[in-house]
């Protein structure tokens, strides 16, 4: 216990533990973002997180809860609007992403009593990770991993071919909803690590890197987790030794791994 306490008592180890916990779920969910071409969608949800923070302060809710709730609400709005087909999906995403971000910023500015470190939310505040944050991350990660494990075959089948999945009796709509909920949750917990503007990078760079090395969907997921964890460790070390901002350093080290793998492995394996 004393050992665990010593680790949890040190801000660097707390940051590392938190980062690794996020990489654990960013890997599989990042694969779905890459497979389903949802990078822009992820970005939009992440941008809406700032609106969630503003609403959290306004109604004095726990911030993680407010962020996850806002992401879920926005995801649902997106699904409904995309179905009505009045605008192309990317246009719709562009409108909602930046409007949510802007509304969040404007709302925060109306609350002078709330003193927030804006750059912490935009780019992450990994080194300020509290024990409470760690609880959120590992609680969220456990929930997501259980959901992924139980829904895996359906999620994969619906990703490969939605109509085939439907004919074979998978509840495609509910699976999509579950995926949205998981995205919202991972954004709420990953914000602490890399911030609103860099979350998508933490999702897609390790997954895209893993694609070059994997032959099966499951191998790609596992590799994405490992690469994400390497990126977190590398980024934190960089931050420790070079005194660089932690969140961006994690993304830089993920990118370095991406360039390295694509430079060495010229052909995808399958």
């Amino acid at each position: 216990m004393a050992f665990i306490d010593a680790i949890l008592g040190d801000f660097f180890w707390r940051a590392l533990l938190g980062g690794l916990g996020v990489a654990l779920v960013a890997g599989p969910l990042g694969c779905f973002v890459v497979w389903r071409r949802m990078a822009y969608f992820g970005d939009t949800l992440a941008h809406s997180a700032l609106l969630g923070i503003a609403l959290g302060f306004l109604f004095q809710l726990p911030l993680n809860l407010a962020i996850a709730g806002t992401c879920v609400a926005l995801a649902l709005v997106l699904v409904v609007l995309a179905r009505s087909r009045t605008l192309a999906t990317d246009t719709l995403l562009g409108i909602l992403a930046h409007s949510a971000l802007a509304i969040g910023l404007v709302t925060l500015s109306f609350m002078p009593q709330v003193r927030v470190d804006l750059s912490g939310y935009l780019f992450g505040d990994l080194l300020a990770m509290s024990r409470n944050d760690l609880g959120w991350i590992y609680g969220g990660a456990t929930l997501i991993l259980i959901l992924l494990y139980r829904l895996w075959r359906g999620l994969l089948m619906a990703t490969i071919h939605e109509e085939l999945a439907r004919v074979e009796g998978f509840p495609v709509e509910r699976l999509r909803l579950a995926l949205m909920l998981m995205f919202s949750l991972v954004i709420a917990v990953a914000m602490k690590i890399v911030g609103v503007l860099l979350i998508t990078a933490l999702l897609i760079i390790p997954a895209a890197t893993a694609r070059r090395l994997a032959r099966t969907p499951e191998a790609m997921v596992l590799l994405a987790v490992v690469i994400g964890m390497l990126a977190v460790s590398g980024g934190l070390s960089l931050s420790w030794f070079a005194d660089s901002p932690a969140g961006p350093s994690v993304v830089v080290s993920a990118f370095a791994l991406f360039v390295l793998v694509y430079g060495v492995v010229r052909q995808p394996r399958t």
Binding site: V34, R36, T159, I160, T216, M220, T270
Partner: peptide
């Protein structure tokens, strides 16, 4: 149409 990003045998 299969996504080439999804490795699948």
């Amino acid at each position: 149409q299969l996504q080439p990003t999804l490795p699948l045998s």
